[in-house]
Design a protein around this nucleic acid. Structure first.
Lengths: 190, 190
DNA sequence: CCTTAACTTCACAAGTTTCTGAACTGAGCG
DNA sequence: CGCTCAGTTCAGAAACTTGTGAAGTTAAGG
């Protein structure tokens, strides 16, 4: 095991398939625990651990050993959540799913949608129980908390962008993968 | 609806049971959507909407129409998450479950635990794929993002405490319910 | 010391979610 | 103009989660 934790993996594409799989499954498991659908979590983790940051449906299905239907469902969920973008390669029927590094940070913190709904429910609660009641005032405070958080998140993301640029020194570009370069061992066109 | 949105409920305890129930169910529904267990969400919402901020197992079971077993499970979950505190009234076998206003804000943002686990998984990923690979560097950036967020959350909660004190003008005390006052219509001791 | 009552735990049943196979739709290519 | 292949949708089977009933455990009170 002197290679790189690889007991034989390292396809010619340059990566240890076994190590990738280990990461994918363990990271996906954490995401699942946090409430994400299992297949969506696995697909997302796979994309995150791919060198180019993008994979086709077929590649995903093959790597994760799941049916095209499962890929389809997972991808639909992820793009609804704005965690992946779909691209169509011109001149090919295949579609690629990509993690836009930037985009998905935002998506992750855009649990704002969730916050908004909580706020709505709380507002109703305050209104119907009366702001003068102890329970009403507690809920009003909770509501204020969420409103506060919401504003904070926006500012926080702004600070992150600055911080990232300082540390990683990059703007909003992804890995600009050289088009046409063999990316995977299974590049078998036709 | 000149009272307080009360269309007839208002038990002698002072609250409109119907309005409370409406809030409990709708707020719980939002929490469930965000990933919380159904019963835990309902119990938490019930506590949040109670005037004293505390209820016994029996009260919870009665209001929510669920079995003692369900209450037990929900309460176990909530106290593991530090979202409620358990108190034992001296001289009674009954236990009370309370939302410490302060405490549960912290708990909610202490998804830090979750963050920590994500970070762990990412660190392994970076290590096994190699920080020099494109995928490794993407994961390293993601890791940095989480670490950044973690620090931010701490600071944010600090600002919230200040903000709350300014707006609501209170420290860390809860509703200091007068002990012995009739809290509910169903105060039937014995 | 024994009784009683509150809470917990366990096994089972019900309900829900979820993944697969198969048929369908639509776009590129001959 | 039609063929072919990539992706989607739908229905059903399987697996998992979750709430209930009943027995068990601990602690208050006579």
């Amino acid at each position: 095991m002197s290679e790189a934790a690889g007991a034989g993996g390292r396809a010619q594409g340059g990566r240890d398939a076994e190590a990738v799989s280990r990461f994918v499954e363990s990271f996906a498991a954490q995401l699942v625990e946090a409430g994400m659908q299992r297949m969506a979590a696995r697909v997302f983790a796979a994309l995150l651990s791919s060198d180019s940051g993008a994979m086709t449906s077929a590649e995903l299905g093959e790597q994760l050993r799941i049916s095209p239907a499962a890929v389809s469902g997972a991808v639909r969920y992820l793009s609804q959540q704005h965690m992946v973008a779909r691209e169509r390669e011109p001149g090919s029927r295949r579609e690629r799913y990509r993690v836009h590094s930037d985009q998905w940070y935002e998506a992750l913190t855009n649990r704002e949608t969730v916050l908004k709904r909580w706020e709505g429910a709380l507002r109703e609660g305050v209104a119907s129980l009366g702001a003068d009641t102890p329970a009403g005032s507690r809920m009003a405070e909770t509501l204020a908390f969420f409103e506060f958080i919401e504003g904070e998140i926006t500012a926080m993301m702004e600070r992150w962008r600055v911080h990232r640029e300082q540390v990683f020194g990059k703007g909003s570009q992804d890995q600009p993968e050289p088009v046409g370069a063999p990316r995977s061992a299974t590049t078998s066109p036709g």
